Amino acid sequence: MVVRLQFEDVGVCESDFSRRPAEGAQADTAHVSDREVGQLLSDLPSAHAAHTAQDGRAWKRRLHDPAKRARRVSRVVRHIRFVYFAHVDDDSLYGDYHHELVTAEVLMDRVLAARASGMKAIHPYLHGEVEERLFNRPPRGSFMQVTPEYVRWYGREGVRRVEPMVREELAIELMGEYGYNYSDALDIATNNSSALPRREQTWLLARAKTPIYCRPLHATEFQQLVRAIEAAYNVPSNDVRVTNANTEIARRAAAVLGTLLDEYVEVPFHVPALADAFAEFHRAHLLRVAHASLTGLQPMPVTGVLGWFSAKRARIYAEVQARLAER
C-alpha cells in the first residue's frame, strides 16, 4: 500500500512562510529581483489600441507626471498576459496556441507569487519524479534486507518515520551503525538511497504545503514553462499587432526568469531571441547579487563574527555564480 504524506490545503504563501527569515542570500537579493521584474512588467505591450484612443489634458498629465511614472516603474506587476485571437475555433491551430498562452500565464503567475512570498520560486534541478519518490513511501515488505533506503524510511527497528531521513541524517546513522567516516557514509547515502539533501527536501515539503496559485516550480514544471513561452513567441498568424505584442511579451517573460534565478542556470531556451534575453538578464542579475553580497560585508560589525563569515560565504558563492554566467 502506497502512502502519500498529507500536506494539502495548508496555506503558507502569504502568511507563515512569508514571515520566516529568508535563507542564505535570499533576503539580500529579493529586492534586486523586485526592481528588475517591476521594470520588465510595468509596460507590457498589447495588440489592442483602444486605451490609446483617450484624449484630454488630465489623462496626459497623469501619463507624463514624473512621480506617477516612477511609481509605475517601481511597482511589481505580478502577472504576464498575452494577447489572444478573437473569434477562432478552439479546435484549430489557434486553439492549441491559446492553450500554450494559458499555460505560460498560469505558471508565470505561480513563479511571481512564490517569489513575492519569500520562497525559492524555481528549483531548476529537482524534477517531478524526485518529488514523487519523496511522497510515496515504499511498502515495508518490498525490502528484502536492511538497506540504506530502508533505514531512510523505517529505521533499523522497522518503525515508520513521519518523514524520510535527509541525506545528512542518513549518513550520520550509517556512521554510528557501521563505523564509517562521514565522507564515506555520505557517499553511501547518496549512491545507495534516494535520500535528498536537507535543503532540497525542506524546499519540497514547503512546496507541498503551498496553495497551488503560488506554488513554486520544480524542474519539470520549469521546462514546461520554457516550452510554453517558446510556443507563445511563435505566433501562428501574420497579424502584425498580435505578433509584435506576443513576441515582446514572451521576450520579457524569458528575461523575468533570468532575474528570478539566484544561481547560475544554463540557458533553457532554444529560440535565439529568448535565449539572448534570458542570458543577458540572468548575467546582469547575478552580477547585482554578487555586488549586494559584497556591500553586505562592509563594515564588519564588532559583534556577530559568525554572521560576517556567513555573509562572506554567501558573497563568494554569488561571485562564483556571476563568473559562471560570464563564461
Rank of each mutant, 00 (worst) to 15 (best):
A189R: 04
E230D: 08
V159H: 12
M144T: 15
P272D: 15
H87L: 07
R78D: 10
E230A: 03
E230Q: 13
E149K: 07
F278P: 04
E132Q: 13
V111C: 00
Q223K: 07
H98W: 10
V256I: 09
I249G: 01
V305P: 00
L196E: 07
T243K: 15
V240C: 01
A171P: 03
L40G: 06
Y180E: 01
D262N: 11
D16H: 11
R167E: 13
H282Y: 05
V256D: 01
L287K: 14
D91A: 13
L107W: 03
D43L: 11
V10S: 09
K68T: 03
S46P: 04
L44T: 13
E105T: 05
A311Y: 02
A232Y: 01
V242S: 04
A47T: 04
F309L: 15
D109I: 00
T220I: 06
I249D: 01
A25R: 07
T259L: 01
E132M: 07
A279M: 11
S74I: 02
E131F: 04
D28S: 15
R199K: 14
V305T: 10
M119D: 11
E263D: 14
H282L: 05
L306D: 15
A314N: 15
V102E: 10
Y94F: 15
M175G: 08
V271D: 07
R152M: 15
N191E: 12
S293C: 14
F143Q: 08
M165D: 10
R19S: 12
E163W: 14
A292I: 00
M144F: 04
H291V: 05
I172N: 05
G128D: 15
F222K: 01
E8K: 13
A277L: 06
G38Y: 10
G155L: 10
L170Q: 03
V12P: 02
V83S: 03
G296Y: 03
L134W: 02
R61E: 13
R62C: 01
M1Y: 06
R110I: 06
C214F: 07
V130Q: 12
D109V: 00
Q223P: 00
S183M: 12
R133W: 03
R207I: 05
K120V: 12
E200P: 00
R198H: 12
E319N: 11
F222V: 00
I212M: 06
V162Q: 14
M108E: 01
S15F: 11
Q39H: 14
E8T: 14
S183N: 11
N181R: 13
R251E: 13
R207V: 09
D89S: 13
L126T: 09
T295K: 10
Y317N: 11
R78Q: 10
V271L: 09
P21Y: 09
F17E: 08
P124R: 08
R156Y: 10
M108C: 03
E230M: 09
N244R: 12
E132Y: 02
